[in-house]
Simulated scan of single mutants.
Amino acid sequence: MKTEDDIKKAVEVMRNGGIILYPTDTIWGIGCDATNRDAVERIYKLKRRDDHKAMICLVDSDARLQRYVRNVPEVAWDLLELAEKPTTVILDNAVNLADNLIADDGSIAMRITKEPFSKELCYRFQKPIVSTSANISGEPAAQNYMDISEEILNGVDYVCWSRRQEHKPHNPSSIIKLSENGEVKIIR
Rank of each mutant, 00 (worst) to 15 (best):
I108Q: 15
D51E: 14
W161S: 08
S174W: 10
I30L: 15
N135M: 05
A98K: 03
V75Y: 00
R15S: 09
S137H: 14
S173V: 12
L153T: 02
F117H: 14
I186L: 11
I56L: 13
G155C: 10
D147Q: 05
K8V: 00
V72L: 06
I186W: 09
L79D: 09
I102E: 13
M146W: 06
D5W: 12
G29T: 05
I30W: 11
Q165G: 00
D6R: 08
A39C: 00
L153R: 15
I102H: 13
Y145H: 14
I136K: 02
L46V: 06
A141W: 00
N144I: 04
L178E: 05
D38T: 10
T35C: 12
R48G: 14
N96L: 08
A76R: 03
S174D: 15
G29E: 09
Y123W: 09
Q165T: 13
T87H: 05
S137W: 07
Q165N: 15
D6L: 07
R164C: 04
K8R: 15
G29Y: 08
Q143K: 11
S137P: 00
H52D: 07
K177D: 13
R67D: 13
D62H: 13
M146S: 15
N100M: 12
I112G: 06
E74I: 03
V130I: 14
D5F: 11
K168G: 07
A34M: 02
E4C: 01
L82C: 12
F125Q: 09
A76E: 09
R49K: 03
D92F: 02
D51S: 13
K45H: 08
R111S: 05
R42N: 14
D33W: 01
G182L: 05
I30P: 10
E139C: 12
K47R: 06
I112W: 10
